[in-house]
Design a protein around this nucleic acid. Sequence first.
DNA 1: TGGAATCTGGACCGATCCAGTCCTGTTTAC
DNA 2: GTAAACAGGACTGGATCGGTCCAGATTCCA
Lengths: 156, 156
Amino acid sequence: MIRITKQTDYGIVLLTHLAAQAERHLNAPELAAETQLPLPMVSKILKLLVREGLLVSHRGVKGGYSLGRLPEEITMAEIISSLEGPIAITECIEVSSDCSHEQLCPVRSNWQRINEAVRGALEGITLAEMTGPLAPARKLVTLGGGKYAGAQLRQN
Amino acid sequence: MIRITKQTDYGIVLLTHLAAQAERHLNAPELAAETQLPLPMVSKILKLLVREGLLVSHRGVKGGYSLGRLPEEITMAEIISSLEGPIAITECIEVSSDCSHEQLCPVRSNWQRINEAVRGALEGITLAEMTGPLAPARKLVTLGGGKYAGAQLRQN
DNA sequence: TGGAATCTGGACCGATCCAGTCCTGTTTAC
DNA sequence: GTAAACAGGACTGGATCGGTCCAGATTCCA
């Protein structure tokens, strides 16, 4: 359903949580407790985010994590592509072009347009905006498992 | 990676193929041969598309499939949501709201914005456009498995 | 009227990927 | 030197996806 993984979902929650209180720097157990996500997952995701440069880690006894940049400078596109690779709807990814049917494939150039639109949408939203106050919003349907996952479009 | 399944990928190819020669109506073996996709998969996908109203089936000896509507009236959003459910990036789908942390989740309203942008992009492209001539386009990387999958953005 | 060709609907299976856990090692504060 | 915390893996169970197969219903045509 064109969806992100839970890992990314959680990652966004963690980043949002950190962005909302940028003065503190939190360690993994604290973040897990405050976001009510499982600690091992939180730990795993934080490591990934450090490796991608979105977070900075502080080792040692009073260690923890803080944002690598200002929330205004981090886009959703960046977060998502950090946690699950380049943003693209389809799977044409292997360079080996044994796609012997390219000439039959009238889809490519238009897919590119779609991919760009998606990417554009994600680049247009910063982490800072995600911490902003909620639209009062009607009661939103949510997934049991993915505690924090975003709102879903139900039309059609 | 925010991607569609191969089923949808194939489905788009099949629909595009049918749209490109709307005068004929093709049966499953013909479509499989002409698109070089495995027959059982083709058959399976065609059934789904009929059920969703995108295709019309003609049973019996000279049966086959043809488009249920004009290619100009079928959008990518429709095709994708037919084959894999509602278009949404995240998984908040269950109505059971045991998502006990809604108040901690500052993500929802913004996710909605993202979902809408994605959907908008997909609604803006019709099947008719997908049959149009290719931009001459540079050599595009493709996936071994997904013969037809679209172009991918490689930046970042 | 009967047989062949085709769609219909569903069950089924193996492979892959995801979510989540766990363990060992390294770094730092005190 | 010890404890607290991050780093970097390997590992596992389960869900989903890609793909196959089969029995039945429908229609054409001889």
